[in-house]
């Protein structure tokens, strides 16, 4: 994680770190990481180092925990996180086709973000809406019984909205 831990003199950073700790408590490694992930969309190194300094939790502990759980990311995610369910029901209903369609349309692979910062693809083990398989989640919204052409239309719609400059981020 570099040597950032020595130069945490940014007061804005300190304020934010203090806010997070006040909200979660000092010892709760996972809760702190979850709060950072929620606020920033990823785990910025400088902020974590500042929190480490203030809480006394070793930065290596943060790193160890963050790399264990799939909820955390060290790089910023796209504005629209496209979660593709790969649960058993979705798998037998053709989730692999949807994955190929996504990769083909966005020109990225799993856990990657498009260069314009708009989309991230995440395949997830199971969203738990097996009755609607295959399922895709974009932002907070679930789309059930998806087909390759349906996915393409959905993504195209977002791209069009975005280029026109009027979207509400993740809630298409």
């Amino acid at each position: 994680m570099g040597n950032c831990c020595n130069n945490a003199d940014n007061s804005a950073l300190q304020t934010e770190a203090e806010e997070i700790i006040a909200f979660t408590g000092k010892e709760k490694t996972i809760s702190i990481l979850q709060e950072v992930q929620k606020r920033k969309g990823y785990l910025p190194e400088a902020l974590l180092c500042e929190i480490a300094r203030l809480t006394g939790i070793a930065i290596s502990d943060f790193y160890g925990v963050a790399t264990f759980y799939s909820q955390f990311s060290f790089t910023p995610l796209g504005k629209y996180v496209v979660k593709l369910c790969n649960g058993t029901a979705c798998f037998v209903s053709g989730a692999d086709l949807l994955y190929e369609t996504l990769c083909d349309f966005l020109k990225i692979k799993n856990n990657e973000t498009t260069p314009d910062g708009l989309f991230t693809i995440e395949t997830v083990a199971c969203i738990g809406c097996c009755s609607l398989a295959p399922v895709v989640m974009i932002g907070d919204r679930l789309y059930g019984k998806q087909t390759p052409s349906g996915i393409r239309d959905l993504l195209q719609e977002i791209v069009t909205l975005e280029s026109a400059g009027n979207s509400d981020g993740g809630k298409v």
């Binding site: 010892e27 996972i30 990481l33 979850q34 925990v65 759980y69 799939s70 909820q71």
Partner: peptide
């Protein structure tokens, strides 16, 4: 307690580790 995404945390000793804010092993 909200999990953070690890299948193995369904195993009871791993789940306890996760409640302890550690890697869920």
């Amino acid at each position: 307690k909200e999990g953070a995404g690890a299948f193995v945390c369904g195993e009871e000793t791993a789940l306890i580790m996760s409640i302890h804010d550690r890697r869920g092993m």
